[in-house]
Nucleic acid binder design. Structure first.
Lengths: 156, 156
DNA sequence: GCTTTATAGTTTCATTTGAAACCATTTGCA
DNA sequence: TGCAAATGGTTTCAAATGAAACTATAAAGC
């Protein structure tokens, strides 16, 4: 009598989060991908450069949680397309100093508001109380929750 | 004086969900990827086959939210490795009928409990009230929220 | 029954991705 | 100073991925 410990994918939190996240990201990306010929990775790079000027490639990688190879490739395309300006830091010739060009800003100024509007629409289905809980829960999962998972593994 | 409508990635819900989801999935996958030489897609296929016997490849694709090419490839490897048995349906020779082999079950019986344990650890940082809200919010976002986003786009 | 259309699944090809190796510059320190 | 280790970034190579074309079988229309 084999009794198996069954996992129901559709109730499994990591799976549900993955589906939800991908569906949301795709919905937003659909908007700008063909319209501006902009990949998700490129957009993420532009997004942080719109927020913080003068970052290096590694800084961008940290802020976007992308790996540096992906950032390097995205930057190559963005510089190529005249959307980002790259110069070398005076004091450290390894580091690049990055900023959106005016062409880059023009795209940013169309994509960023659209993205925020999407977020607003998404959240419009939650009331204030639910949003507050969501905020709290996301923070908790990100800080303690993931730590708890990893701790359970690495101590084995 | 150009005033830009700035998007802060670290406060942007889609981005935060993406990071959270990827971090969680990676933490779990790390566990079984080398240990069983099992990719995430392969594991997802095995997970639904552990839950429902006799599905076809398309059925698996629907339940895992993967595309059928990915499922086809995962199945090729799983059958190859003797972890899944594939036969043809009598009434419809196009459809395959899939099931875990005993070898497949052995792996399932190790991976599924580990995955559930990870989920438990992750959720252990939330109290009952928070978990209830999370459940409610996830459902709401998945049903209404995504619809609201898409509606806002397609009516433009 | 025969032809068109739909469905299940695989293969092909081009693109994306990631890990590791790599080059250049800078930093630490004997 | 001078040499080892670290850091910023790019390139290379192999594997993963996705779209579209393709094969085989089944269902529908006439």
């Amino acid at each position: 009598m084999t009794e198996h410990h069954v996992l129901e994918l559709e109730r499994f939190l990591p799976y549900r989060l993955s589906i939800l996240s991908n569906t949301i990201s795709q919905a937003i990306a659909r908007e700008y991908e063909q319209r501006f010929e902009l990949s998700v990775t490129e957009w993420r790079v532009m997004a942080v450069l719109g927020r913080y000027e003068g970052l290096s490639a590694v800084d961008v990688a940290v802020r976007t949680a992308m790996d540096k190879v992906a950032v390097s490739r995205a930057l190559t395309r963005l510089v190529q397309a005249g959307r980002v300006k790259r110069t070398l830091a005076d004091r450290d010739k390894r580091r690049s100093v990055l900023a959106l060009t005016s062409k880059g800003w023009k795209i940013y100024d169309q994509v960023a508001p659209a993205a925020l509007e999407h977020e607003r629409q998404l959240l419009s289905t939650l009331d204030a109380e639910e949003r507050a809980w969501l905020e709290k829960i996301l923070i908790k999962l990100g800080t303690e929750g993931i730590g708890a998972m990893n701790a359970a593994v690495t101590t084995r």
